[in-house]
Computed example of a mutant assay.
Amino acid sequence: MFLEAVKLLGLEEADHAGCVMVGNNLERDVAGANRLGMTSVWINWTLRYPTEPANADEEPDYTIGLPHQLLDVLEEINSKA
């Protein structure tokens, strides 16, 4: 799904590193973003999905608990650019 999204946006592989994905599922969201070289932000706010990464692909770059915390993460990412 991530590859299709970047294709629809007209992004090249070199653009993936500039993308930030926010999701609540380690296996699907975080791993998918990590595999494409995107920055992954896991929002840990539901017990519906596993809360521990099963492998290195599921390790998020950042973890937040509430949506508004994304602003701080984006500021940090931007300061590194």
Score class of each variant (00 low, 15 high):
58 E>V: 08
43 I>M: 14
50 P>D: 11
21 M>A: 08
7 K>E: 12
25 N>V: 11
78 N>R: 14
67 P>G: 00
51 T>H: 12
19 C>L: 12
4 E>W: 14
75 E>F: 07
72 D>T: 14
47 L>I: 09
74 L>Y: 08
29 D>Q: 02
11 L>P: 08
80 K>Y: 11
6 V>E: 01
58 E>H: 02
4 E>M: 13
21 M>H: 09
27 E>T: 04
81 A>R: 15
69 Q>V: 13
49 Y>Q: 04
53 P>A: 00
57 D>M: 07
61 D>V: 07
18 G>M: 07
34 N>E: 02
52 E>L: 09
70 L>E: 04
37 G>A: 09
60 P>N: 05
76 E>V: 14
55 N>S: 10
20 V>E: 01
21 M>Q: 05
26 L>D: 01
64 I>K: 02
22 V>W: 02
72 D>W: 11
76 E>S: 13
77 I>C: 04
25 N>D: 15
24 N>P: 09
76 E>N: 11
64 I>L: 07
22 V>K: 05
56 A>C: 01
63 T>A: 12
76 E>H: 09
74 L>R: 03
55 N>Y: 00
36 L>F: 06
37 G>C: 08
26 L>A: 05
60 P>R: 06
6 V>A: 01
36 L>Y: 06
55 N>M: 05
62 Y>K: 06
40 S>N: 05
36 L>E: 06
30 V>M: 02
50 P>S: 01
7 K>Q: 09
38 M>S: 00
17 A>H: 02
18 G>T: 10
32 G>K: 00
74 L>P: 06
34 N>M: 01
68 H>N: 13
19 C>N: 07
19 C>D: 02
72 D>I: 10
16 H>R: 11
6 V>N: 04
49 Y>K: 04
16 H>S: 09
11 L>W: 09
34 N>H: 05
17 A>T: 10
14 A>P: 08
50 P>G: 07
61 D>T: 14
7 K>L: 11
62 Y>I: 10
11 L>D: 06
27 E>W: 00
25 N>M: 06
48 R>D: 15
42 W>D: 03
12 E>I: 10
50 P>I: 00
20 V>G: 00
